[in-house]
Design a protein around this nucleic acid. Sequence first.
DNA 1: CTAGGGTTAG
Length: 550
Amino acid sequence: MKRALPRHFSATLLQSQRKLLPFSPHNNGGLLQKLPKICPIPSFTSNPRRVFTNSLPPPEWIEPFNDVSDLLSSPGNLNPSPWVSQILNLLDGSMDMEANLDSFCQKFLIKLSPNFVSFVLRINDLRKKPDVAFRFFAWASKQKKYAHRLETYVSLIDCLSLSSDLDRVRLVFNDLRQKGFLMTVSGANSLIKSFGGLGMVEELLWVWRRMKENEKGIEIPPHAYGLVIGGLCKEGKCMEGYTVLESMIKKGCKPNVAIYTALIDSYAKHSSMNEAINLFERMKNKGLEPDQVTYGVIVSGLCKSGRLDEAMEYFEFCRGNGIAVNAMFYSNLIDGLGKAGRVDEAEEFFEEMVEKGCTRDSYCYNALIDALAKCGKIDEALAVFKRMEDEGCDQTVYTYTIIISGLFREHRNEEAIKLWDIMIDKGITPTAASFRALSIGLCLSGKVSRACRILDDLAPMGVIPETAFEDMINALCKAGRIKEACKLADGIVDRGREIPGRIRTLLINALRKSGNADLAMKLMHSKIGIGYNRMGSIKKRVKFRVLVES
DNA sequence: CTAGGGTTAG
């Protein structure tokens, strides 16, 4: 019987000591307990001769299988090395698990190779204990000169995914991603299975892309196709998604309604409405029945591309053919009609939906309020806003944003500001877009500093509109109020901040357009708003005001 | 439980 004997023993031990063999983890009573006495654990020294004479040989990496010759003589019938069961016994999840592993390895002068670690992680007993697996993985990486390989990561992720330990999977995956391993087919297949099962699309797509860079022939389980296609569709990569659809069909994997719907929606959202309809027809030709959601994305896409009459045809088709229409259908139609200036029809749908037994949600109210506000019917918009409250539908930050913009458009500034305050009082968290509506309105009504003060109040609420100054300066420039725009830019300088290049460009263009080409040139070639000294601390900066005051 | 769909403005 073959023994899992570290090679260096035969090379370095005295003949007499070797006679004490057989030696194995199963029989460790004889020689090994004496070893420390014969050769004490060496202290490190820079003198190679000392190492040679006084120390034990370096620990040997052990592999999960005894010998390569096993593999040659009886492939498929490999016996794991006895070390495997020894290590497995130590993986008990106890407090001193790591310490026990350390002393065991020290005692037997072994180190566990990445292959070994990976093999152990694949053993069923351990796969049921993700905590222990994770600790073992972390412990292994602390061995001297040890480096995890792709396979160890893959095995651990497989183990963690079985118990849906999402946080740890992410942690381990982030680590893996930084390593830059070359992806293997087996690694990719395992990872895709893990991520597919957990619905981790980003991670799955990463593996898939990594794989495409190298080889082909990767086995994607059917569910993972859906995740990959869905992930690509969400990123707006419908063409790539379509390619995956074709490859899944080629592999004999049948796409379902959900996969087609995701693709149709993605095409519809990226101004390829005709492609979306083509795919919709192809899906029907294959015998798949589009459902509520499929029709929903078709109607929504048609509405967004202004093809309202077609949208209404599909809508009527649904109603006549037992496909339930929901509030989403209505909100899309109301929004589309409103944006096309067909407000009366939008109102009809709004009234009709409740009669047909469909409850209005905030999207429906918001769409109609927006339609009314945009065509100057701000009072009617306010009436619907009030109705929304009366009818028990919660107003959202979108509702307020629409109303605030509408009020400013009609120069009803005080009412707009009042609504902002009501929104805050109601505990509705503002968004960057809602602040944009407010700040632009304030700037154009000459209340730039008030906008800045409100902006300062947002930070403690965790709302940081990144383009706030840019939006405000842009609004002022567009209104031809360059002096005020410059003053606002100086406000940023006063706060000790650098003026972003985008804002400089904005002001340069505004100056050019307003016939101040010379000032535009001056700004372009100056360091107005910029200025750090060599140590990176703030230098006195030139203010924008000098441009318009000179 | 059951892969897929939603709003502000530019």
